[in-house]
Computed example of a mutant assay.
Amino acid sequence: MAASIGFRPTRDDERILKEAARPGESTSETLRRALRLLDHERWLMQFRADAERLANENLNDEADAW
């Protein structure tokens, strides 16, 4: 089921959209690209947190799985 989202941009939102838009890109395309970038940023934050948590992990101390 496709969701339809209503959006009433503020002046600041309009400025950001205008500055962020690529030539020939619609507002919807700009927003889609921004959402993908946000999703990627969240993925990177989780990646960094996992890497920090596992920084001292030594796989040589683990039993072989086979």
Results as ranks from 00 to 15, higher is better:
2 A>M: 10
3 A>N: 15
4 S>R: 10
4 S>G: 02
6 G>A: 10
7 F>L: 09
8 R>I: 08
12 D>S: 07
12 D>R: 12
14 E>H: 04
14 E>M: 07
14 E>K: 04
15 R>K: 13
16 I>M: 06
16 I>E: 01
18 K>P: 00
19 E>Q: 04
19 E>Y: 01
20 A>W: 04
21 A>F: 00
22 R>H: 04
22 R>L: 10
23 P>R: 03
23 P>G: 03
26 S>F: 05
26 S>T: 12
27 T>I: 14
29 E>C: 01
31 L>H: 06
32 R>M: 11
32 R>P: 01
32 R>Y: 05
33 R>K: 10
34 A>E: 03
35 L>R: 11
35 L>V: 08
35 L>C: 09
37 L>G: 11
37 L>P: 00
39 D>K: 13
40 H>L: 10
41 E>C: 04
41 E>M: 12
42 R>S: 09
43 W>D: 13
44 L>A: 05
45 M>W: 07
45 M>E: 12
47 F>H: 09
48 R>T: 08
50 D>R: 14
51 A>S: 14
52 E>R: 13
53 R>M: 07
53 R>T: 15
54 L>R: 13
54 L>A: 13
55 A>T: 12
55 A>L: 15
60 N>S: 09
61 D>G: 06
61 D>K: 13
61 D>T: 07
63 A>T: 02
65 A>I: 12
65 A>T: 14
66 W>H: 07
